[in-house]
């Protein structure tokens, strides 16, 4: 069981959603004893400094590997992790496989602005080639469609709206994305937070910085020009209820390592909604 405040916060979050979602905790049985919740024992831990893929390979008894195995065997409907995103990605990809046609899964939170803006990628792949952003757009568009948006619009996160703006990655990606149906061009952060598009694509490094900046501003009650962060939420926990790991063949939600009880409970709810709504099957059909 990962997360900065494990096992206390995960236990509290699981209790908070009891009655709405059946939650099974995976981790050190001694630490989880007496909670009254169902527990599956996992006695290994993948350290934050460890290579995620090698860690998952070397430690099949790690909680994330055990949890993913339960999902792969159909014993649970979804997995939520506040542990290392890299380890979660590795365990999910190795244990579940991918939706056909997906090269590398992405972290896809839904920003609570407009009809909900899907951010792709918020941290799975920091270094990507321009072609990957086209794949991000297709995945994000399919997810938005699965969430009910008709012909979702896709924007490329950039420092200006004009086609020539940005670094070499953004300019090359813009040229490739221009052939994609629904592409609405470059979007600046303020436009994203105004709900100008249904999907915003970027590399995992930029997306992670963008998300954390918005969250930090919202948590501090700060507002940027035009009340940017104020338009999102009043606190970090309200910015998003975890992020779906989009492209793996199962419902996996990643939450902040520092997630509090409410935030982790929201992530569990996100996972339950995705599982009950058959989001992965819809992605299969849409991609």
């Amino acid at each position: 069981m990962g997360g900065d405040d494990a096992p206390g916060v995960p236990i509290a979050a699981a209790r908070a959603v009891a009655g709405e979602v059946d939650v099974l905790l995976v981790g050190d049985p001694a630490a989880l004893a007496g909670t009254g919740l169902d527990v599956v024992a996992a006695d290994q831990v993948i350290d934050m400094g460890e290579d995620p893929a090698l860690g998952v390979r070397a430690k099949p008894g790690a909680s994330i590997a055990v949890a993913i195995d339960l999902l792969a065997r159909g014993l649970v409907g979804a997995v939520v992790s506040a542990g290392s995103t890299g380890a979660t990605l590795a365990a999910a990809l190795l244990g579940l496989g991918r939706v056909p046609g997906v090269r590398r899964p992405v972290v896809a939170p839904v920003l609570p602005v407009g009809h909900g803006v899907v951010l792709v990628d918020a941290g799975a792949s920091p270094d990507v080639q321009p072609e990957a952003l086209v794949a991000h757009a297709r995945l994000g568009g399919a997810y938005a469609a699965a969430r009910g948006r008709v012909s979702p619009s896709v924007g490329l996160l950039n420092v200006g709206a004009e086609p020539g703006k940005g670094n070499s990655l953004a300019r090359a990606a813009h040229a490739l994305l221009s052939a994609l149906p629904g592409f609405a061009g470059n979007v600046e952060p303020a436009a994203v937070l105004a709900g100008a598009v249904d999907v915003v694509v970027t590399d995992g490094f930029t997306g992670n910085v963008f998300l954390k900046t918005v969250e930090a501003m919202a948590a501090g009650g700060a507002t940027g020009p035009g009340g940017v962060a104020g338009g999102v939420a009043g606190g970090r926990g309200e910015v998003h209820g975890g992020a779906l790991l989009l492209g793996v063949d199962g419902v996996v939600v990643v939450a902040h390592g520092a997630a509090g009880e409410a935030e982790l409970a929201a992530a569990i709810a996100t996972a339950a909604v995705a599982a009950r709504g058959d989001v992965v099957a819809r992605l299969h059909a849409l991609l």
């Binding site: 995620p52 893929a53 090698l54 390979r57 990809l93």
Partner: peptide, 10 residues
């Protein structure tokens, strides 16, 4: 990357 390598080998 290491994830690609592990996925291929496994």
């Amino acid at each position: 990357d290491s994830l690609d390598l592990v996925e291929v080998i496994e």
